[in-house]
């Protein structure tokens, strides 16, 4: 069967410096997959290759069976910072990918506004990013990512800038909204708890150059993870991952 998104043996070097080597991952329709690894293992570089910002030195990116290596505009990408432009209102920020694709501004705004309630952003349309809290800004950035493409989304440490309490809340929200919109996502994190809590599968990335060390599938389905982080199963995964990362 064909996967939704696949990378085949992707390597990337800058000059003599090899950042990632032979990365092959596969993501199926509707899956939430995370890339877990320490800083400097080349996770962001891999994302830049998948999104087409970089052309990898070797390997291919396959989307729905089609080779899209080095092509931008096919996979949505949410970078580490929320990157909402301070001079655009939230609705204009969110509608940006539609406008870039050539949709007239008014229609783009209307289409974007339709999703505000679903993402818990109702009433913020006319505000500017600095008027929103960190958690709300992250939601807006995620909605923008979703509007860009409901295909596959790459999220680069989407929640790392938030404080612990906000993070807990937004994790629950994230699982809820993903249940509704069924977006296939790959997200980068260096937070082990976050990875276990939010994903169907985890790729562990280690080393320099970065390589995929192993893959872990989380048994409990996403829908049944209330207070999951307090269970023995969760602890068992955590111990296993910590062990892998320390080697």
């Amino acid at each position: 069967m064909t996967h939704k998104l696949e990378t085949r043996d992707i390597s990337m070097s800058f000059g003599d410096r090899k950042i990632i080597e032979g990365i092959s991952i596969a993501v199926d329709q509707g899956e939430l997959v995370s890339l877990l690894g320490v800083s400097g293992s080349g996770k962001t570089t891999l994302f830049n290759c998948i999104s087409g910002i970089y052309r990898p030195t070797a390997g291919q990116v396959i989307l729905d069976g089609e080779d899209i290596t080095g092509t931008t505009g096919r996979i949505s990408y949410m970078l580490q910072k929320d990157l909402l432009f301070p001079y655009k209102t939230i609705v204009d920020n969110v509608a940006l990918p539609l406008i870039i694709r050539g949709m007239p501004a008014r229609r783009a705004r209307e289409r974007a506004a339709e999703h505000f309630d679903e993402f818990g952003l109702g009433g913020t349309e006319k505000l500017y990013p600095k008027q929103l809290s960190g958690g709300m800004r992250q939601r807006a950035a995620l909605l923008r990512t979703y509007l860009f493409s409901d295909n596959v989304a790459l999220l680069d440490e989407p929640f790392s800038a938030l404080d612990t309490i906000t993070k807990g809340k937004i994790h629950r929200w994230y699982l809820d909204v993903m249940e509704k919109i069924r977006l296939t996502t790959v997200f980068i994190t260096h937070d082990i708890n976050e990875a276990i809590l939010l994903s169907d599968r985890i790729y562990i990335m280690t080393g320099a150059p970065g390589q995929i060390r192993t893959e872990i599938r989380i048994r409990t389905p996403r829908g049944e993870r209330q207070e999951y982080d307090l269970t023995d199963e969760f602890m068992e995964y955590k111990r296993q991952i910590m062990h892998l990362l320390e080697q």
Binding site: G123, Y128, K130, Q131, S133
Partner: peptide
């Protein structure tokens, strides 16, 4: 956008 006060509205409605 320069005129607006930061976090004047919206606030934390995470729940």
């Amino acid at each position: 956008w320069e005129r607006e006060e930061p976090e004047a509205a919206g606030g934390e409605t995470e729940d």
